[in-house]
Design a protein around this nucleic acid. Sequence first.
DNA 1: GTCACACGCGAGAGCGCTCTCACGGCGCTG
DNA 2: CAGCGCCGTGAGAGCGCTCTCGCGTGTGAC
Lengths: 349, 349
Amino acid sequence: MTDTAPRPTLEAVAARAGVSRATVSRVVNGGDGVRDVLVERVRKAVDELGYVPNQAARSLVTRRHDAIAVVVAEPETRVFADPFFALQLRGISKELTAHDNQLVLLLTEGRDDHARVGRYLAGGHVDGALVFSLHLDDPLPELIQRAGVPTVFGGRPGWSGDRQGVVYVDSDNRGGARAAVRHLAGLGRTRIAHITGALDQTSAADRLDGYRDVMVDADPRLIAEADFTPAGGERAMRELLDRCPDLDAVFAANDLTASGALRVLRESGRRVPDDIAVIGFDDMLPVAEQTDPPLTTVRQDIEEMGRLMARLLLRELDRGTTHGGSDEATGDTPSSVVLPTTLIRRASA
Amino acid sequence: MTDTAPRPTLEAVAARAGVSRATVSRVVNGGDGVRDVLVERVRKAVDELGYVPNQAARSLVTRRHDAIAVVVAEPETRVFADPFFALQLRGISKELTAHDNQLVLLLTEGRDDHARVGRYLAGGHVDGALVFSLHLDDPLPELIQRAGVPTVFGGRPGWSGDRQGVVYVDSDNRGGARAAVRHLAGLGRTRIAHITGALDQTSAADRLDGYRDVMVDADPRLIAEADFTPAGGERAMRELLDRCPDLDAVFAANDLTASGALRVLRESGRRVPDDIAVIGFDDMLPVAEQTDPPLTTVRQDIEEMGRLMARLLLRELDRGTTHGGSDEATGDTPSSVVLPTTLIRRASA
DNA sequence: GTCACACGCGAGAGCGCTCTCACGGCGCTG
DNA sequence: CAGCGCCGTGAGAGCGCTCTCGCGTGTGAC
């Protein structure tokens, strides 16, 4: 009953089917160039014995693992505790599963972990990596680049120098921000404030840029820095009310920030959206739909981002396999993708 | 620059250090029974060559993979989109990392996926599995049991027949529920209602049991069924207000449900906690702290649950290795653990 | 009817590692 | 001073698979 059952090997299947190991191998791997009679016979033997190929043995010779590492740096709990990551992971999982790849999850916290991850990736345990590099000064991308593992990044990595061959998937943060602010302007609002996210993350920086695109010469006092958290949103909102009591709209860097801001506005007796209109970013359902009033926000398709990351990586891996090991970019390198965002109108603006 | 660098093998290290493969292997795996001089020499060679053992080759002979599968069945998006799962995963990751084990994530949705997971586990790709079996009728546990892979479950599996050797880690849902209801009673509330979770999950059933433990002969109309979602909470709350306008307290099966209930209460003009006291479950910070008023709730240490699951599994695996392959339970089988919960008092009760 | 060729299949090497086994050297005892 | 034992080391087999190579058979062309 326990695992003492000795797993059948290729050899065993071959014996039972009355063919050679090589033939069984061929059948198991697609069955090209084998007569149908034999294919049938081998399939039967496989079924009867419950044969499952030993991945270790296979990897040893093929040097492929059909496994992808997903690296998530999570210096703060926040990052991990929000649904963002979970949704992306789900998209990745779906895509990988569809291509018979496994998902090896590497969560890192702290510097020493980076070394560990670097070692792991360099160790050739996986065929590629999907990396969420959230901060500008993250040493991880550098490490990974050096490990020589094909990689796709989630979110635009924040290097100043854009190295060649760096592939990422991102939302159109800047465009989304522009849409949000334009929407507010379209409502006739003129004193539109912005509560930023953590500005060491490209998404926050990009959203701020989008805001500035529209509010070309905005009063700098209309911009308050926060960190993507509700608490940060509260603090920033108080600051803003203090500095600019006349503001009539707020674009928050994400929904959580917006929820904090809403709370402060309610406390201060302002009506939303009558006195002050509020827009968030993300369209995190548990948050955006439950605020009071429900939050107008910019939706990004997070699951699709994940799926796309996986697809890009798999394509690159496939390319590497098919075209033989050419060294430098062979022309059709997959390139980065920026997904569109859409404005979701609810009650807050 | 690219991955064309041929990874050094044991052989190469041995040559450089002027010893045999066997000796290098010994050093790499702990270095027992090798003279310090040689250990040093080998270490140096390893560093210089940047040698990393080939896990596939190693697994092939040791039959260990140092990898654990985490299986998450997620029929509903909800499950995945809440921080619960993420926190647990984090605990697991920490523990596995500390023991140099990898985390292979398997997300399933739908029936066909079950077969896939079963095949994967039976395929001997991983040493063990951590399984989140959320629903009573889930076929997954059965499948996994049959695959013969050492497994620890997250949350009490819902089989009527408690098979032997089933190990799980759970929160004290029933005890926590009792504490919550007692607290309400201690506040002088007498008409205490309960909004349940999805009752096909053991956690929901256990919390209901806890409620009943205290409210021994509760008015059945004080119990409304929901599904752990805010929307469900709203619906159930309306039902309850309709049926029992005189209720003075509500114990909700989780924080999300409670947040829905709070909204309905506010709409209906009831004051919380003055008119109606509310308690949740989970202590999900982004929710519990942000409700209005902040939610009194039952905290469970989710991350610790994850960590514990991993620890239990690793211990079991270790046991299997150390004591040779004895077949039936060797006495010191790790047994299930139920973690305590604590009541967190905030403003809502 | 003969020759060339293609196609299907089996034999065998080898991927990088671990682990058993046997051997040489040293220290200890009598 | 001889012999026994033990510790440290190397040689070599083999884990389960893939893949190249070559042989045999069947098919088509002349």
